[in-house]
Design a binder for these strands. Structure first.
Lengths: 229, 229
DNA sequence: CAAAATTGTCACGAAATTGTCATCTTCCCG
DNA sequence: CGGGAAGATGACAATTTCGTGACAATTTTG
């Protein structure tokens, strides 16, 4: 279970330490020193979750969390608060603000890993290993198989990732750029129109089970997996 | 994120300084020395937000904020209060009055920028991704769907943006120029009459669910989305 | 290593969208 | 009532956007 994690922590020592732990656990880590930087980064890199230090210079962690939560685009990004030992008020306040979990410093790498795993399981549908069913379509992340009305579908690797992404994010329009970021990866340099071609290939494959209209194109905006007929 | 900001500050030195900062950050700045001037300017120029000094000659900032809030036309314009250092009472009072945020002088350009960005993100209604419902009409920015009485409406990209804007700014008249700025974009050079045509197309589409009279024409002034029948 | 599969890019055509204009309608005011 | 101003409407051409098939490059597989 590899995830992209945004770490917001002003003390560079602790930041490095946590970053090391997370990296070794197989996660991609993006670091921010301040609330402002965090705001920038979370928008452009769409992390799978945020590790947020309670105490920050300027804007406090809790304020930052509140901002995250008030913006619909970031509403679904899970947040874990890092707090100093035993400050119960902070804990309550943090959870009220919408943090998904909190962890008190100092903590062991194992504990951190466990919390991350738990939160991701709860909040990031893509990362789970559960089967996803939708309109007679069943996608199994484990066996890497897809069936439509019990008919096995032949999908290439990219088509599979694309469908996987759409099925974990239904009823939501994604631009070509967003799809490239989410399905191909941030760093990749690929033409936007390439998305069209893969959408087409995916549609063709889905057609084998009568699901050709599952993915709708939204002119001028992007594509969307529609749950309704 | 470029915005039009109304700055209300009586000390010309500070005013110049802030104006410089904001301009460099890519915002358009309109300055007012007094509450009276501010009232004039906010009506005619429709800023995206207001930076309001707490201490003003004559009418105080907080009174001004109260007036802003009580006027339907300005109700949706976010306000950031500028207060002197550490006056907590002001802070509380300010937030109660309806200020969206406060910032204590002196402050760094970075902090100001961050607060502005945050407030705009929170308050600029078009930016949120919450579903908007109005007279049986439901617009979902996320899925890019519009339904009127559960009937799906077919909208082109521009019609969608136009309706989105109106639904986030109901009961308020917008001139063609303002609509071009808000829906098309500042830089675009398009005939004003083009707005008429798109209004028409939007009305036609809305007619499919019996909402043809949703957008009213205000002769000599512009158009308005009416909430009431 | 050869065959097969996958992938990114391109060019072309179809279709949708858009801006503009000319022409009616409607409304306002003397 | 008439004249004009402002808005509505329909048509149209230009542009944009998307779908589609082909193809070469690359990777995977046998």
């Amino acid at each position: 279970m590899a995830a992209t994690i945004l770490l917001v922590e002003d003390e560079s020592g602790i930041q490095e330490l946590i970053k090391l732990n997370l990296t070794q656990a197989g996660h991609a880590v993006i670091c921010a020193d301040s609330a402002e930087q965090a705001l920038m980064l979370i928008r452009q890199s769409l992390p799978d979750m945020v590790l947020l230090d309670w105490m920050l210079p300027g804007m406090s962690g809790i304020e930052l969390a509140r901002i995250f939560r008030s913006d619909a685009r970031m509403k679904n990004v899970p947040i874990i608060m890092l707090t100093a030992r035993g400050d119960e008020r902070d804990k309550v306040l943090g959870l009220e603000t919408g943090a998904d979990d909190y962890i008190t410093k100092p903590f062991s790498p194992r504990e951190l890993s466990a919390r991350i795993k738990a939160v991701l399981r709860r909040r990031a549908p893509q990362m789970t290993e559960d089967r996803i069913a939708l309109r007679g379509l069943v996608l199994d992340p484990v066996s890497h198989r897809v069936t439509g009305h019990d008919i096995a579908l032949e999908l290439g690797p990219t088509e599979f990732r694309l469908l996987h992404f759409f099925m974990t994010h239904p009823e939501r329009v994604y631009s070509r750029t967003q799809l490239l970021d989410q399905v191909w990866g941030d760093h990749v340099f690929v033409e936007e129109r390439t998305v069209d071609v893969h959408i087409r290939r995916l549609r063709l494959a889905l057609g084998a089970s009568g699901h050709e209209d599952l993915i709708a194109t939204v002119r001028g905006a992007g594509y969307r997996l529609s749950v309704h007929d």
